[in-house]
Amino acid sequence: MNPAMARQLRALLTKDLRLELRTRETAVAMGLFALVGMVIFQFAIGTRTDDATPFAGGIIWATLALTAVLGVGRTWVAEREQRVLDALLAAPVPRLVLMSARAVALVLYLLAVQVVVVPLAMIFFVREGSFADLGLTVVVCLLADVAIALVGALLASMSVFSRARELLLPVLLLPSLIPVVIAAAGATHAVLGPAHALDEYWRYCVFLAVYAVVFGLVAFATFDHILDD
């Protein structure tokens, strides 16, 4: 990444941030959706037990995966609605920069939601949570967010040029996120759950990193064929 590309990346991110700050629609919608999701899961499962600690990891990541669909669905929406996509594609911006900007913006959205949702989930569901556990959970969040963002940027860029994109995106995105949910929920459970199994935790974290690297490479190899017509 040379200085010119860094300048382009910064400009694209500033643009996304400015658009989001004007309306705040995406972050607010995602945050509320995540809260409602957790409450629904709690009523669906948690009420059958006095201690929801064993389910905490599962509830958190099932909710966050569904929330991610909202965030990924907003990718390229401003460009489409305000009809600027042609201007971005005609500009001398390497497609690598366009895709990276999307992925970084997605990570920021997901982090913004998790800052609120994960501590709340610990208060709601976990009996004996500590700050050390929260720290370990943050690592899971970061790894999972990168993984989700890479896959999300790739798939969202395909669905934006397709019919019925609101329907297409969840069907496209969620199956690929199943491994992320399994690993992130497993890691979170290993930390927050009763067993506190740290070796299990690290195994899941390594898996998340591998997943991110693999799909990062796939995205890197294919995105030229997605954006350009």
Partner: peptide, 20 residues
């Protein structure tokens, strides 16, 4: 081909950066 939700200045700033 400009962002309707950005100001005139912000739009030019964006495209100026993209074109270096």
């Amino acid at each position: 081909l400009v962002y309707l939700d950005l100001t005139a200045w912000q739009n030019l700033e964006l495209f100026g950066d993209l074109y270096g």
